[in-house]
Design a protein around this nucleic acid. Structure first.
Lengths: 375, 375
DNA sequence: TTGTATGCGTTATCAC
DNA sequence: GTGATAACGCATACAA
């Protein structure tokens, strides 16, 4: 319960100076006898170096931050799963920031870089404002942004081509003979929302389908919002035969509504999501989804950040992850283990894929034999 | 790009001493003129206080840790979603530790408390060894354990009664007329694995069902392992008419296998999981699951930790969260929105529940503070 | 090889 | 009120 031992404590106990203690602890050349005495004193005292003091001296916190809108979103989770081990292997701890997609919160996190409690940051802003750009430029530590930023922004950047992703999905649905392809989007003032809206319009036009505003609906990137938006869309355009959803959560909401209304998926309405999260394989029917390479983006971001920390003064880099279409039963239409239709530039996922390979559950709980609580 | 301004920089610029700067910055009484000059200098320089130096002085890092086996597990995710906002509201940052259920890693994290980079820790050990107990006793910062620990362990503790949870599920299945109730468990050398195995045996015995070892199978707490274990069980006991799975991931694996083998759920085999994660509402059919109150446990742990930080020298507390049975179609058998069978001490979940609402779930509050342990 | 002394950026305790 | 100055715990340049 005492106030943890310091190198001073050790020095006294070993009868040497604190400098010697520090040297031994850092593996610098020392006389064997000194080393022995220091080490045994340290062991006896249960010495653990104070990382705060060390950080103050070294100007490195050995911590890196990850800031996203909401930990609950499986997309971010997929990224964290990749990011964490990479950073950890490099000796960094991970500090989590949930910003609620709030711009002020994000700016605060960026300003927080000045506090020096993290050596760098991976951030996923849903909206990129002028203030963001100002903070990126003034950032006091390396920042890697996942998502698109304007050319010339002085940050490393990992992006995906969601326009191409939308095109893959729309063409897939079109290739299945669908002609009334609806789009359920998230907020248009977000980067992905705006990009996907534009991409949808473009893809539809490229296929020569008539432009019908009734086919596009906006909600938010959550399941319940997706359900509501889908309901509105169905009311306005009852003849839709396909739905592209701007992410998997929205698609789940769409499935909820379609089931409730008795429309068969995919026979009556084919449904596709985006992000290809674990949810896609869990949904029923399994959800066709555009993979935007979330794990890859997470890993790439982590590696960019580590590279940047190793050499500060190189040009900002941009890594682009190609989208892939992963076809499942929600559009393929065939439950039998036969071959789903071949799709250009796409990948076909096996239903047996273990989406939760790394998930170990079994959270602690009351021990069996002593399950009784003390009264 | 320069090396961030410090109070010294400000002092020079404002023509005052660093002490005055510190006072102004901390809102201590100062002459208006001094305050004005300091503030404007600080603003012009874009000063941000160095949290490391501040921590060294104050001996507080304003960071708290959360250590679990794997961030990818939806159970832990549910907890983090509750923990993060609570800690944040109290001014703490969250440092994440993924231990891979490795005892050595867990011990390392506990030892890390000596490094003072976190002021406290919430930990979920899958196995509790003697070394754990030793480290709990020697911990240099408050620790809250989610999961059971032996009586008298000097940590605050949040637990759930999974014995009762297993009983609820088994009785529910029995109440549906099932008499060949199988159990697919995780490793028996884990705390939850051991507890649930014992609870299953006891529940079956209490119902007067014959003890049949063929009905219990052990795998691991993952979907793929659950599938394999279920396959083995089905081969050994083809006549099972119900399956209780030790967590939701295992249950998903069981559903995979049952579907593959053409057994209808729940008509041929009723399936229930445990943990009531988001996965349960996504599965098809929606999965009956024993809620062990993960969000509540997370929140309770966070609050216990904050309380402890506020007053170090009170008795360790134990919070127990009561399990609830959440009945869905995988056992209720009826897809129509009719009334599922009434179950004692249970809750019926609506299919429309939004699993991604940030404020987690419509789960009712069942935190039962069992009060202090008898010392 | 070892010890002394200094600084990392703050806060806090003194005198003035 | 304000300004030197001493910690906080560690690493290191320099002297011995």
């Amino acid at each position: 319960m005492s106030d943890g031992p310091t190198i001073t404590t050790i020095a006294q106990r070993a009868g040497v100076s604190i400098a010697s203690v520090s040297r031994v602890l850092n593996g610098l050349p020392t006389k064997a006898e000194t080393e022995r005495r220091v080490m045994s004193a340290a062991r006896e005292l249960g010495y653990v170096p104070n990382s705060v003091a060390r950080s103050l001296k070294s100007r490195r916190s050995n911590q890196l931050g990850f800031a996203m809108a909401d930990i609950g979103n499986p997309v971010y989770l997929a990224m964290i799963r990749e990011i964490q081990p990479v950073l950890r292997a490099a000796g960094y701890r991970l500090v989590l920031h949930s910003t609620n997609a709030d711009t002020d919160d994000e700016i605060d996190v960026l300003r927080g870089l000045g506090e020096r409690y993290i050596d760098g940051l991976i951030m996923i802003p849903l909206r990129v404002t002028g203030e963001h750009l100002k903070m990126f430029a003034a950032a006091r530590a390396p920042v890697v942004v996942i998502g698109s930023v304007p050319e010339g922004t002085p940050v490393d950047n990992v992006r995906t081509d969601s326009r191409e992703g939308v095109r893959l999905a729309v063409e897939h649905l079109h290739g299945l003979g669908r002609r009334r392809i609806g789009f359920v989007n998230g907020p248009l003032d977000t980067v992905p929302g705006a990009a996907r809206a534009a991409a949808y319009a473009e893809a539809v036009r490229a296929l020569g389908l008539p432009h019908d505003p009734a086919l596009a609906e906006v909600g938010d990137f959550y399941r319940a919002d997706g359900a509501r938006a889908t309901a509105r869309l169905l009311e306005r355009a009852p003849d839709v035969d396909a739905l592209l959803c701007a992410n998997d959560l929205i698609a789940l909401g769409a499935l909820d509504v379609l089931r409730r209304e008795g429309r068969r998926v995919p026979q009556d309405v084919a449904v596709a999501g985006m992000d290809d999260t674990d949810l896609a394989t869990l949904a029923w029917p399994p959800l066709t989804s555009v993979s935007l390479g979330s794990p890859e983006r997470g890993r790439a971001a982590a590696e960019l950040l580590l590279d940047r920390l190793a050499s500060r003064d190189r040009e900002p880099r941009v890594v682009t992850v190609e989208p892939r279409l992963v076809v499942r039963a929600s559009t393929a239409g065939d439950d039998a283990p036969g071959e789903p239709p071949a799709v250009d530039a796409s990948t076909v996922d096996t239903p047996a894929r273990d989406v939760s390979a790394r998930d170990g559950s079994a959270v602690g709980e009351t021990v069996g034999d002593s399950g009784r609580e003390a009264p």
